[in-house]
Design a protein around this nucleic acid. Structure first.
Lengths: 240, 240
DNA sequence: CGGTTCATTGAAGCTCATCAAACCCCGTGG
DNA sequence: CCACGGGGTTTGATGAGCTTCAATGAACCG
């Protein structure tokens, strides 16, 4: 029995049934572990022979740099998430990945992965689902930045992260640990760090949430959902 | 000989060699044609049994509606592009697709498609590539809306559309026909229609481009590329 | 300790949204 | 043939939302 499943297995199990054999295959995939410290790039743009990982512990973020010094973070990765999947499949699309905190990741061996897929269709489906979910999240961020104001956008992102962390047992409707700095949050939200700070103050003053000392407390979950029009459907839409 | 290839075949051929057999298989895929008029939804959110198409003629756009009446267009589809692919593979992620102009689309039969894939790996690769490219474009739009100002963003999008149309023989560095209204453009750029109009005026006054009567004229291609930091790499990154 | 990173707040100003009005083109119907 | 209406474009005026610059404080660390 696997008393403590990996976050990856927990995530997959949350939307489809995984048999005992499936789970042990998953456990085998988690063979080689690698650690990364803050500041050490995990995936760089333009470099060949990238690796793909599943995040086991800690947070990371994927981003694009602009020539004018700007940075747009595409998404955060939390335990159980893929990391650098598209960089392995395709010639780099110019995305980078870096740790937010010190990170533990398990290497995905592409050839091993393919072998597992052909032997185990339900795992292939699960991985496809995870990839589709990643894309849905990017679309949601696009909608957020394009058509929601700073407060709605911030609330929406913090709710999304809470929902994702809850799936792997690292959060609840009450809150979660969030090691992201306000600067990083700003680059994810398409805002300035100063304005993020003011937005967080508004949310705090309205007794909706607090963001302090690396911890997000969702004081008024329903209020936040209403404010930001958060609909978690895009996080758990299944394959057909 | 296929003197006039479909836009889809032209697009795929632009990044990989397709043999004569490949091309004839592609031609077979283009079996049933359907027409859509402006205002007729092609893909709706939340409806089961959606179809997927390849756009043969005309323009379409995919978008998300917000409860407060806002609309964010995710991407435009031009001839040769997939349409509703993710709606077929997954339970609706809440995206809709509508024609911009009257549209001709060829139906993709999912089971037929799968049969073609297993018989013809290079076509499977090609389609995977096209899907990956779609995702890369969404990421690029996210970067644009998040970290480029209105002028850069507008120039960037119009350059992207020019590059995509050039691939299928519908545009060049000089310009292309663009049936998009300024309202629709605004919803793609995360701007108001009024401001898009002013941005277009700036671009015109700076002799960079004109957008008039459904035609985009790129007067200063290099200037636009420099202004918007347009790097077409994301449009033709290949599979590994 | 001085140095660094992050959080916080104020002040000033720019970008962009909103409201409003006029205009154009084009199709439709009296 | 002209009046009318509707969608799209264009322009002005006003102000909200957000950025930028600047400065200060708190926490951490070699």
């Amino acid at each position: 029995m696997h008393k403590q499943r990996s976050p990856f297995a927990r995530k997959l199990a949350s939307f489809m049934d995984l048999s005992e054999p499936d789970l042990s295959v998953l456990a085998q995939l988690h063979s080689r572990r690698k650690s990364f410290d803050v500041g050490a790039g995990m995936v760089h743009q333009g470099q060949p022979d990238q690796q793909a990982y599943v995040l086991a512990d800690g947070w990371a973020f994927s981003y694009r740099l602009l020539p004018n010094g700007g940075r747009q973070v595409i998404d955060f990765q939390v335990p159980g998430d893929f990391l650098g999947l598209s960089s392995v499949l395709f010639r780099s699309a110019g995305q980078c990945v870096e740790p937010v905190t010190a990170v533990q990741a398990t290497l995905l061996d592409p050839s091993h992965l393919l072998a597992v897929f052909s032997a185990n269709p339900s795992l292939r489906t699960a991985v496809l689902w995870a990839a589709a979910r990643d894309e849905a999240m990017v679309v949601e961020h696009l909608v957020s930045i394009g058509r929601r104001n700073a407060v709605e956008r911030t609330a929406h992102l913090l709710l999304e992260l809470g929902a994702r962390l809850s799936l792997v047992g690292l959060g609840s409707k009450a809150g979660y640990d969030c090691p992201v700095s306000q600067y990083l949050l700003a680059d994810a939200l398409g805002l300035s760090a100063v304005h993020v700070n003011r937005v967080l103050r508004v949310l705090r003053e309205d007794k909706l949430l607090t963001f302090r000392n690396g911890r997000v407390v969702l004081q008024d979950f329903d209020g936040l959902v209403a404010l930001s029009n958060f609909d978690r459907e895009y996080l758990d839409h299944g394959l057909k």
